[in-house]
């Protein structure tokens, strides 16, 4: 035996001895034929006959987006650009505008919210990033259009998706911060403490609810940064 053979890093693999019948390959052929004929005679197809049989979607399936409305019917989105920033495909295009004066608790609202459903990769990052639970992904997967423009969903179309799916049990509405809808498996998520200590000048951390900014007090402006 040479030194190479004694080396622990080299493992000699022996070809298994082949008998007479195996060398003719006839038993292998017969075994193979038995398997295939068994599949033909015990016929159990796993095919799903779409569109007669629709698939059962898993929980939290990520389909077409929708923009949620709040109890007063206004769009929840406050044009904070978090979803547009988080999107890996850069498919969200938001144009913010000052909220109309009859919405005193809103500072901004999206004058134009265009989501390119064709560019979207349906990862759900926008849904996770949104602080006001405005954008969510529904269960709709069979989205079609006859032109590229048709599939650039603007705010009205996204609100329309909300109107069509808000009663669907497959699309839980996550309207309470930290609490999931009735279709979810667990009732609530634990509240999360802030990651860093809050400095006294941090107005958003001191706000009672995210996305709600109090009308500014002139005294705040006059405070010099420390």
């Amino acid at each position: 035996m040479t030194a190479a053979a004694d080396n622990q890093d080299v493992i000699w693999v022996e070809e298994p001895e082949i008998g007479f019948w195996e060398a003719t390959f006839l038993p292998a052929i017969v075994e193979g034929l038995k398997t295939t004929i068994r599949h033909v005679t015990n016929y159990q197809p796993v095919t799903q006959q779409y569109p007669e049989e629709k698939p059962i979607l898993p929980l939290h399936y990520r389909g077409v987006h929708r923009l949620n409305r709040d109890e007063q019917g206004r769009v929840k989105c406050v044009a904070c650009m978090l979803c547009a920033t988080a999107c890996p495909a850069n498919c969200i295009d938001i144009l913010a505008a000052a909220a109309p004066p009859q919405w005193p608790d809103r500072d901004k609202y999206p004058a134009s919210f265009v989501l390119d459903e064709l560019r979207c990769i349906y990862c759900g990052m926008c849904e996770e990033a949104c602080p006001v639970d405005a954008i969510e992904l529904t269960h709709i997967y069979d989205l079609t259009g006859t032109s590229r423009n048709e599939l650039m969903y603007d705010r009205e179309k996204l609100l329309d998706v909300f109107d069509q799916t808000k009663d669907d049990p497959r699309d839980p509405t996550r309207t309470r911060r930290g609490r999931l809808g009735p279709a979810a498996e667990f009732g609530s998520l634990p509240t999360v403490a802030p990651a860093t200590p809050i400095t006294p000048g941090d107005r958003s951390a001191q706000a009672p609810a995210p996305g709600v900014i109090h009308p500014h007090k002139p005294s705040d402006w006059s405070r010099k940064p420390s």
């Binding site: 599949h39 033909v40 016929y43 197809p45 796993v46 095919t47 006959q49």
Partner: peptide, 10 residues
């Protein structure tokens, strides 16, 4: 068809 039946599909 035969190949489909052998492969558990229609």
């Amino acid at each position: 068809k035969l190949s489909a039946w052998m492969q558990d599909r229609r």
